[in-house]
Design a protein around this nucleic acid. Sequence first.
DNA 1: ACCCGAAGTGGAACCGGTTCCACTTTTGTA
DNA 2: TACAAAAGTGGAACCGGTTCCACTTCGGGT
Lengths: 344, 344
Amino acid sequence: MKKAPTIRDVAAAAGVSVSVVSRVLNPDSGPVASAKRQEVVRVIDELGYRPRAAARELSGGHALTIGLVVTDLSNPFFARLADRIVWEARSHGVQVVLMTTQEDPHLEADSLDTLLDRSVSGVIATPTGGNVEKWARLQDLGVNVVFVDRTIEELGDADVVSIENFDSAQRSTEYLIGLGHTRIALVTGPRSTSTGRARISGYTAAHESASLAVDPLLIRDVPFRGDAGGDAVGSLLAMPQPPTALIVGNTAQVQSSVRRLVQTGVRIPDDLSVIVFDDNPWTELMSPPLSVIRQPLDMLAVHALELVLGRMQGKFPEGPRLIEVKADFLPRNSCAPLAHAPAR
Amino acid sequence: MKKAPTIRDVAAAAGVSVSVVSRVLNPDSGPVASAKRQEVVRVIDELGYRPRAAARELSGGHALTIGLVVTDLSNPFFARLADRIVWEARSHGVQVVLMTTQEDPHLEADSLDTLLDRSVSGVIATPTGGNVEKWARLQDLGVNVVFVDRTIEELGDADVVSIENFDSAQRSTEYLIGLGHTRIALVTGPRSTSTGRARISGYTAAHESASLAVDPLLIRDVPFRGDAGGDAVGSLLAMPQPPTALIVGNTAQVQSSVRRLVQTGVRIPDDLSVIVFDDNPWTELMSPPLSVIRQPLDMLAVHALELVLGRMQGKFPEGPRLIEVKADFLPRNSCAPLAHAPAR
DNA sequence: ACCCGAAGTGGAACCGGTTCCACTTTTGTA
DNA sequence: TACAAAAGTGGAACCGGTTCCACTTCGGGT
């Protein structure tokens, strides 16, 4: 178990002072004669020297690290988002510290404290909705916060990257209305979240422009965790006048909902047309393949990182930025025109 | 944008020296009179003081951080593994820096360097197979390395946590043989990986104990990345005497393989019985639901973390540890007895 | 030949913790 | 009561970088 060389070792071996080595390490931090620069570079290479990140952070005041705070990685949406963000970050020489919240504000609060300890210079997060003051404090201490997918409205000056939730919900609803459906159920996220509200609005707007009444019983806002989606689906199917179409707009609950559909043996699309908000390739492999609203994860990740890095370099003007990216609607075989004399 | 308080601020406010505060922060590092301890705790709370991680690392020499190096998070296997590890780590107050390798040894090498810079005290990884000296150097510098799922044999003293690959492959092969199949195809990982080899051995052993010859053409060792699984499946189905059963033992290629099966419209299980090594809940939702070897991710994660943390505290004796956990075989409807007069 | 500014260099303080050590105050025991 | 051992405390060095500043050495303009 050897010991790694330090900047002073390098300086000694190259016959220069630590200042010079430091300047070689950080171009633009001062002049270095090119002969010495070469020698230093040679010695660095020879010794296999690498600057200790902790020391840099300590004197620099902040780390080349960002925090990524998501609900949990077993949700493919977040997993793929994380994948893209880590990838994108690496290409900018930034490391990612990962924390999961399990949708629990306490755990989230904890994570934020930890990230503060680590002096991260930015955080990309899908907030639970709580901890408003904590988020504010974070920003107050100079941490750049970017929310992805959801947001916290109370927080004035946070950047947000999300898909066009209103639009996506509206479009998919319109599509189903176009197929003749009038009883369209919507399973979506809690009304306490920006995402949940926007999707309900889109759904409602589509009804209104088709002069269709909205049956509030067909809208189910369910939590992100647990089996809530499946239960909602079960209860919808058990209604005296069940829906003929279903939109699952709670990404986290798609799997649970689909499982229930499969288990109850509802015929898709004959008995029920289905559209889900999901990004999971498996939706395509089911029979029938499910129609989906596909979230452009790459775009979300790229924009989120761009924002957080841009802020770190003070690139953008003061105000908060809201970036909405378009989500693709991929109609597949899980939707059919409404049969005039339904089998049931 | 305020500035966070330091240990000296706390010391001043509590009317004690920094040493005392430090001792309060780190119990067991020295005695503190309980009156002063209380006062210090009060001040810490009042000021919202939190020790800077970077400073600790710098003087302590190592960080309460581990590196997690996986191929990519879009693979649900790694995503869920990462999820469990992050979760498990948090409960021990350890942070996780995440790096992905895309199965590329260069990126892996890069990641290792970065983790070294960060003075992580441990690394949990699914190695690509290359970078043997680099891994050795890491250990040499006192970083505890634990491999999950795969291993690098050349590396003498690394801990390994994996599933019983040989056994799992053997069991699933035996199951198919028991159903009367004699031409069983195996799509698995590269022979350069421990996993790939073990699964082939298990597959072979099952054949031998049933006195069945192994047709080498039915064994396809394909890379983890890309569409190799799908291509292998395509080529298997195109054989003059195609297999009547298929085991997809390359977790990363399950999706690609299944996609190909669905696309070509092979009837499962009538034309082909299928078993896949996978952990994805979607396998259950397909029609027919796929028989799977389910990797007990929780166990892998828990053991890996236990090992790495245990090493950090010098808990275990010197030698490397190999932990193999049992993988469940879940027979579902994608396997059927061999029809005596096949339809094709 | 002379002076001024820019380039190049090294010394030393600093970032915020931990830890060793010397010193003072208790405490316990003979 | 006396004195050694234990408890409690603060000062200062240290971890490994960055950065400010003072200093030397050039080169160029007049």
